[in-house]
Simulated scan of single mutants.
Amino acid sequence: MNYDCAIIGGGPAGLNAALVLGRARRKVALFDNSAPRNGVTHASHGFITRDGIRPAEFRRIAYEEVLKYPSVRHWPSEVTDIRRSELGFTLLTSSGDRVQARKLILAAGLKEVFPEIEGLRDFYGKSLFNCPFCDGWELRDQPLVIVSDTTDVFHKAKLLIGWSRDLVVCTGGRDTLSSEQREQLVSRGIRIVDTPVAAFSGRNGMLERVHFTDGTFIERSGGFISPSFVPNARFEEALGYQTTSNGGIITDEMGRTTVPGLFAAGDSAYVMPSQLIFAASSGSKAAMAVVADLAEEDWQAL
């Protein structure tokens, strides 16, 4: 039960960290409860050699690669508590196990918080998405809707016009667009609807209509929505690391947090854009930093 490094989270950040640590012959405990945020998505994009891969297939290949290194162990359970100890960190799991690790990488990612709109979950991941870079190509040249009550709505419209010129922006009645921004959108043929969205309708996950609270509707075949994000796992009280205003863990460029021996990678550190390739890269860097710190400690002990 004693490891060089424990990793919480089996997404691209945690898996890539485990791969690097395993290849460095470090003893790794990888905790993953198999509930990935992109599990509802039909395919993942933007990762060279893996463009269009199903998330489940990505995980299958990743685990096949990671677990061929004998020093890596997969724990299919949730970490419920973490405490600092003389040797590093003590982790307690939902199955009652106690694991000791010299270093710890937090890579549990984020979870999405959606607006309460009827039918949204029926279409999310199939014809409604949140990232234009991930799914804009699949919706190219279609009549699209942007549903966002945040200040990113103007930026998202500017991005999406590169994939489709037929856009409708729905603000939910929030004052998120300035007068100048509204003028710019309208001058480019983008319609703005301030009436709140009441529901989405369609068939088999394919969007057909967006319904508003005043009884009107528009026909759209896809679109983008802006959920808010919160950390999947929060241990700041127990561990004392510093966070940003949105809950992201503050790290240096190699993933080191403000707590010695504690690292964060991927969406847990709000590595943006939130894509596989960025998360995997941050996991690799955090693992390299762990190996470097362990090597320094071991060198001094020789």
Rank of each mutant, 00 (worst) to 15 (best):
R174V: 02
R209H: 10
D149C: 04
E297K: 14
A279V: 11
L104N: 03
A301F: 06
F114Q: 05
Q100P: 02
S187T: 15
S281H: 04
N204K: 11
A295T: 15
N33H: 10
N33G: 00
G266A: 08
P36G: 06
L120P: 11
S77I: 08
G162F: 06
D81S: 14
R209N: 12
A233Q: 13
A29D: 03
A279Q: 08
L87H: 15
H42K: 14
L276G: 14
D51L: 13
S282T: 08
F133R: 04
L120V: 09
D32G: 09
L139R: 07
E78Q: 15
I105Q: 02
E112Q: 05
R209K: 15
V230M: 14
D214M: 11
I161M: 13
V259D: 05
F31V: 10
E296G: 03
G247W: 03
S77F: 02
G222S: 04
A264F: 02
P260N: 03
I190S: 00
R84A: 14
L120M: 09
L15R: 07
S77A: 13
S71A: 15
F129T: 03
G223M: 06
D4G: 08
R102C: 05
D141C: 05
M288N: 04
N204Q: 07
I225A: 03
R54I: 09
F224Q: 02
E236T: 05
G136N: 06
D214I: 15
D97Q: 15
M1H: 12
P227E: 00
R256A: 07
G205P: 07
R165L: 08
D32T: 08
T243D: 02
V79S: 06
A292T: 04
H74E: 12
D81H: 15
I117A: 04
P36Q: 09
A238P: 05
G11Y: 00
D4E: 12
K27N: 03
L177D: 01
I48W: 05
S148K: 00
A107F: 07
N204A: 07
E112A: 09
S164P: 05
M1Q: 13
V186G: 01
L30N: 06
E237V: 10
E183N: 11
